[in-house]
Amino acid sequence: MRVRALVIRIVRQFVRDKRTMALLIAAPLLVLTMMYLVFSGDKYEPKVGVVAIPAPFQAKLETSGMEIVAFGSIEEAENALAERKIDAYAAIRDGKPLIKLEGSDPGKNKSILLLFGQTMQDETQAGSAGILPEPSVGYLHGGSEMTAFDSLGPVFIGVFAFFFVFLIAGVSFLKERTSGTLERLLATPLRRWEIVVGYILGFGLFTGIQAVLIAAYSIHGLGLMMEGSIWLVLLVTLLLSVTALSFGTFLSAFAKSEFQMIQFIPLVIVPQVFFSGLFDLESMSPALRWISHLMPLKYGADALRSVMIRGEGWSVIDDDVFLLLALSLAFMAANVLALRKHRKI
């Protein structure tokens, strides 16, 4: 009977806590939907440029499951590759066939090379072109020895910097409210924006240390591929943390307890992980792909990948950096407004 009483009590509490119930039911569905969107989209069709290769071979390539774009010269194709408009190009240089890959995603490299290999094997068997010379394979970034970790590492740096700062900052700001110290602070001449800025600076100090540690450990400790400037990596990691900091403290306004703060993880962290570049979104329908633009993590991860794998500099990542900065400021402003709930002035 006592057990029954306990069961009834738990059921009652559960029913009353709509939020936890919604989380229990809706969150797995949300995550599963995202998995579905990411993994079972349209079949991945590599975009491959060709420069003056024999017409019958080009025709064969077109039927092999690649999207073929013709270029007038190797330079044009090279530019398109650098701008990531194509994933690879095939050309004849000095009488020899050449395949050059963009290279930053080992998965894509493999599937493109496989398609080329199959096409050439078919050609050879059909005998229409005689024995084809083995093409030389080049990479714009990375290389054949690049591992999946090299490719995903920059995203992981971003994800972890973001996740832990989000949670810790959110919970501490929440504690300020639940312990009554926020109310006490609001009974002093302290302005609302001063509270928000104080939090960002105080925590920012520790997130700065965290950024240095994460970046240094992954590059020097784990040997993550690092082509660009370490300073840019630090800048982006730090900005991601600050975004997480302002985002976490802002969202804590909508949680009543630490537990409710944890409930935000599947809602705001998991989607970001899915859309930030851990998974290739190119096979996802374009209509859904725009969601990624709402994810702060995406900008950080993109910038980190550009610097670490492609060795790119400020001119390529400046947009991402400014966007992260703008997002941080926007979340801070939103938090100042959210504090109005506790004191209007």
Binding site: S179, G180, T181, E183, R184, A187, T188, P189, R191, R343, K344, I345
Partner: peptide
């Protein structure tokens, strides 16, 4: 009230102990 500058002239002790433990 409310006016921020007045906070300097008021001493407030809340019902819950708002302290950093």
């Amino acid at each position: 009230l409310p006016k921020l500058a007045m906070m300097n002239r008021i001493g407030y002790m809340a019902q819950s102990d708002a302290l950093y433990a």
